[in-house]
Simulated scan of single mutants.
Amino acid sequence: MKKLWIALMAVSIMAISCKENKEEVVEEDTAVSEAPAEKTIAAMNDIEIMPISHATFVMNWDGQIIYVDPVGGSASFEGMPDAEVILVTDIHGDHMSEETLMSIKNDKNFLFTPKAVADKLSDGLKPLVVVNNGETTTRNELKITAIPMYNLTEGRLDKHVKGRGNGYILEKNGYRVYISGDTEGIPEMRSLENIDKAFVCMNLPYTMDINQAASAVLEFAPKEVIPYHYRGSEGFQNVDKFKSIVNEGNESIEVTLMEWYPSKG
């Protein structure tokens, strides 16, 4: 009887030991499978920004080339890869240039504009894709959502009326980029969520100053903000001070200053 009891105890100890070893192997396998996935997601959100001037820039998002508000003629884009996606925000000359659009438009790229812009462009630039405030479209996994951009301050209301132009949210692989267009710190901007990279304008007397821009940025708290479009008839806005205001309010927001005006000095 004593021998039987000893044998049963030995079997029990072996069973427990095997179970613990099996659980340890499962945990190790799980850890190994998670690591490559994290690297893949990071690699899929590789974005290169190439400022042209003022509101115009080129974005290379994992090889998908996006032109934003292309103006300045074909010379401004010499050496740049051809666009797959072209976005226009508004009808003003620092955002819409038919001559420039004609020089870069081809059979392989897609032009997205609000209706007010489409109505002013000639048939040579059509077909194009009209997307208005609140509407969403896609191009090769790039989700494009048009959101409002307009003025709030008395004396500026007629410069950018609600519903005419577009700000844009671009999203791919869970990464979200906001392009403000010409706007003040409107409720639609302040209520944005989960923005990874934001381009925010600040130029008087047409949109807003650095204080209103910083207030809005602190409210929707993007991971990174890039001030752009900061030259107005009253001169250049102080983007260094904008950066200081934002970082004093929230040091976790990365403020990236880029060269938008090469001939400024």
Score class of each variant (00 low, 15 high):
A55N: 13
E251C: 03
D90A: 10
I52N: 06
V225A: 04
A213L: 01
T56M: 02
S53E: 13
H95Q: 11
N60D: 15
D196V: 00
R176K: 15
T138A: 11
S103R: 07
M102I: 12
A221T: 13
L157Q: 11
I16T: 11
E99A: 15
I66N: 04
K108L: 10
H229E: 00
E98A: 07
I13P: 01
I104N: 06
I66D: 03
M189T: 05
P81S: 11
Y206M: 09
M258I: 02
L111P: 03
E20I: 10
E20S: 09
S74V: 13
S263W: 13
M50C: 10
L218F: 06
V177P: 02
S244G: 11
I13V: 15
I226N: 00
M59D: 02
D240G: 12
W61N: 02
V85K: 05
G265Y: 10
S97M: 04
E38P: 00
M102K: 15
G165C: 02
D107T: 12
P187G: 10
D119S: 13
T256G: 02
L121H: 07
S180D: 01
V117L: 05
M208E: 07
I6P: 00
F242L: 09
F112G: 00
I169F: 05
E84F: 04
G185P: 01
E28Y: 08
N211L: 06
C201Y: 00
E259N: 15
S97A: 12
P227S: 07
E184D: 14
V217P: 01
L87D: 06
G63M: 09
N140T: 03
G79Y: 07
A75Q: 14
L125G: 08
S244V: 05
S252W: 04
E38H: 12
F220M: 06
G165D: 01
E254H: 11
K3T: 12
K143I: 12
M149T: 00
N211H: 15
A83T: 06
N45V: 06
S122A: 11
K172H: 09
N151H: 05
S17W: 12
N140Y: 07
I41P: 03
H160Y: 14
G249D: 02
V255W: 04
V255R: 04
T183Y: 01
E27N: 14
A42Q: 15
L152R: 09
A55F: 05
I47M: 13
W61S: 03
G265F: 10
I104G: 08
I16H: 08
S215K: 11
N203W: 00
N21W: 12
V246F: 03
E224R: 11
N211G: 01
N60L: 04
T256E: 10
N247F: 01
G265V: 11
D62L: 05
T40H: 10
D82N: 14
M50D: 10
I104W: 08
G235W: 04
K241H: 13
I144M: 04
D240S: 14
I169L: 14
P70Q: 06
T113Q: 05
M44D: 13
D119L: 09
